[in-house]
């Protein structure tokens, strides 16, 4: 434990002595983590959007005119059920529809409580079994009398899913790339401290210090850099996300009837992610930078 105190003390001394470079690498790593967090934020929200939208993907919603009776609708349903490619078709009253909306809006569902009258129409929901036949089904449904509108997102959904997959892959690639770059940044910063202390290290080796004892302060120095970067990046991305929810929250709710991933959940996830990445980047970077020096 005596050596633990020495290690921590040395690490801070080194950090301060190498302050300018330490700050520069903290900036660099913070920037990396910020980009990383933007990708992360985008990815988790897009995932959520994709999940939400997927629920509509395999369904066609037929909005009925107010004068269309439930019996009329039943007849349409009978007809549709016989159609090739339809798995199921059922009637949904406007009250049921409103309830569903409220549920989807979650915490913000209360916003719908103040409505004077229900703006939603009665509708028929068709579950599609065979996606290839979706177009034909939609066309047939459109030919019925008493239909106000047909909500059918196939193209949009297709594009969205493709985009989601692309963004997820891109995010993974960029994240790995950024982590590697960060490790190199840390390794080079620590290497400079190691250079500065090359004499000291060589004397330590000659006097009989163990490798882990010599490595300790550099390891801790790397971890300090990693953790400070993580803390700064977390504060910044937390702030930015808070703003983003304020600005875009209503829009996504209106457009996708979905809430952005909650700030609390996101910040907690980012905190863990940054902490693990920060420590790993720092530790791996410093171990790499020392390899040559410990050979003697």
């Amino acid at each position: 434990m005596r050596s633990f105190g020495y290690t921590i003390k040395q690490a801070f001394i080194q950090f301060v002595r190498n302050f300018n470079l330490s700050i520069v690498s903290i900036f660099a790593i913070t920037a990396m983590l910020m980009i990383l967090s933007i990708f992360f934020i985008a990815t988790v929200n897009i995932n959520r959007a994709a999940e939400t939208i997927k629920g509509d993907y395999d369904s066609i919603q037929i909005y009925l005119l107010d004068e269309t009776t439930e019996d009329d609708a039943k007849m349409m349903i009978e007809d549709l059920k016989k159609t090739d490619g339809v798995e199921d078709a059922y009637y949904e009253t406007r009250e049921q529809a409103l309830k569903k909306f409220k549920k989807r809006w979650g915490d913000n569902g209360y916003l719908l409580d103040n409505l004077q009258n229900n703006p939603l129409p009665n509708s028929i929901i068709i579950k599609i079994g065979d996606l290839e036949k979706a177009d034909g089904i939609a066309k047939k449904a459109g030919a019925f009398g008493g239909v106000e509108d047909i909500k059918y997102y196939k193209n949009t959904v297709d594009k969205l899913l493709k985009m989601t997959r692309f963004i997820q892959t891109a995010a993974a690639v960029v994240m790995i790339f950024l982590i590697i770059v960060s490790i190199i940044v840390v390794a080079n910063t620590i290497k400079l401290t190691v250079f500065n202390r090359a004499d000291e290290i060589s004397i330590m080796k000659y006097v009989g210090a163990t490798n882990w004892f010599i490595r300790g302060p550099f390891l801790v120095e790397g971890i300090i850099i990693g953790l400070l970067s993580a803390a700064i990046a977390l504060a910044l991305s937390g702030g930015i996300y808070h703003k983003a929810v304020e600005v875009f929250g209503d829009q996504t709710r209106a457009m996708l009837s979905m809430d952005l991933v909650s700030e609390k959940v996101l910040v907690t996830n980012l905190a863990w992610m940054f902490m693990i990445i920060g420590i790993s980047i720092g530790a791996i970077g410093s171990i790499i930078s020392m390899r040559k020096f410990l050979k003697v």
């Binding site: 004499d199 004397i203 006097v207 009989g208």
Partner: peptide
């Protein structure tokens, strides 16, 4: 190695 070197002191020309 560390244990070995603890039993062997060393002095260099350039003091170090």
């Amino acid at each position: 190695i560390p244990k070995l070197r603890r039993n062997v002191g060393i002095v260099f020309q350039d003091f170090r």
